[in-house]
Design a protein around this nucleic acid. Structure first.
Lengths: 238, 238
DNA sequence: CGTTCAGTTGACCATGATCAAGAGTGGTGG
DNA sequence: CCACCACTCTTGATCATGGTCAACTGAACG
């Protein structure tokens, strides 16, 4: 599958109209709300999370530029989780009617939506594996590998480095660990030279070594096609 | 959204043609394979799982009658996880061409497919929360609540009881615990009268109590609409 | 009947949690 | 420009949940 010029124009138009800015740490939408628009992340990081009655919080996914939120728009009437801004966020919002028009008129885009949805589900599966089976060290290494490759696939890395706005507490809420233990595990990874990570900037000098430390296998990201998919998006300005 | 008679007939036809039986503990399809058909579970339990290089295995979802497997059919070229039969399994297989015909001709069914996909993703999110945040006791209680309600929504419960073919080792691979610890936790739940569970038969005398023990909140299952959705399937023989 | 697989129990161990205090760092207002 | 505050990171000491290893029981099945 690949996009036609008409598809690309339509995508560019969508990203241009109705943009909105959300402050860091604010919710883009909260659990229980009725979804009102599909959001396309244009800039910044967001996270999908759920709260437990006992006060704990679990982050279940991150959204970086190019990612979509709330495809459930038509289908599920209430958000079953919240989406929060990690950094200041810029999003494009696509309302119900426009979305519907796209789905009926642009089959390639619809297929791409399915694609995005299925990959995101595959990532969810891997996160279950991550918290279910891996040690603290491995979980963190795995998370760093995943996010680096996802950032790379949308052109947001710079050689071996990338901006990485998560606090150690965010990482704790992602990996099901405490922030104290995350701290100690990160120090271990640093000591071994597997990562350089300070001031919200991450460098991975040897990706394969870090992948080894995290039992990371990139297949689940379906990156090859992810690239093909996002290529068209990156060229949208052309 | 609701189905027309034409929709229902089509669904009945799909479930009737090309059924296949898989022995217990065999794979329906393995990670790395190219998916060749969408499978609809007609009878028995299956599980979606991933293996790690270090030999451990994580179950990431169960599939019970009425559930679909491998919607990735057109979209992803390789299975990123395996699907195995827990019990002997009866499935209906829908090939690529037929599936494509459905998607183009039956918009209601297509919407229902989206719906199934999104609910299943919501379940994945909850599983991440389960292994990430809950204690052993809570994880197991939560799993039992979820599966009971899912079985109930397709008419496979009998009052407070249901068939429940998972071994303690299966539960361990689902919850990220060891089978020894699963055993002790189950005994605890039994001792407190929260469950009766033997010979692969589960009884939950007080669902709300068990939900409390598992910090279980059923919202993520979107059950109300699940019922509405599966109604049409249950009546297919009519 | 013997074999296999699931469940059970006990003793001991280790990963990661908890609690608490202190050090940087950055932002804000006087 | 400095002082203060809030937040994140860091470190140490202790604790507990759940893991490991190993042996034994019981049921199912050919």
């Amino acid at each position: 599958m690949s996009f036609t010029d008409a598809d690309r124009e339509e995508l560019a138009r969508l990203c241009a109209q109705a943009t909105r800015t959300i402050q860091a740490k604010r919710d883009l939408i909260s659990a229980g709300d009725a979804p009102r628009a599909v959001a396309i992340i244009l800039d910044g990081w967001a996270c999908h999370y759920r709260n437990l009655e006992d006060g704990s919080r679990q982050i279940v996914d991150f959204a970086i530029p190019g990612d979509l939120c709330d495809l459930n728009l038509f289908i599920l009437d209430r958000m079953d989780h919240s989406i929060g801004a990690i950094t200041r966020l810029k999003v494009a919002e696509v309302g119900r009617e426009i979305f519907h028009r796209i789905v009926t008129n642009y089959p390639n885009i619809t297929t791409a939506l399915w694609w995005v949805e299925l990959v995101s589900k595959s990532i969810h599966r891997e996160w279950i594996v991550n918290v279910g089976q891996r040690s603290a060290r491995q979980r963190i290494a795995h998370l760093l590998c995943e996010m680096f490759l996802r950032l790379e696939s949308v052109g947001l890395t710079d050689g071996f480095s990338c901006d990485f706005p998560l606090t150690q507490n965010d990482i704790a809420e992602t990996t099901g660990l405490t922030s104290v233990h995350v701290n100690r595990s990160i120090q271990e990874l640093r000591r071994e030279g597997l990562i350089v990570f300070e001031r919200y900037r991450l460098t991975i000098p040897d990706m394969l070594a870090l992948q080894g430390a995290g039992l990371f296998n990139p297949d689940y990201l379906h990156i090859k096609r992810l690239n093909r998919h996002t290529d068209s998006r990156r060229k949208e300005g052309h």
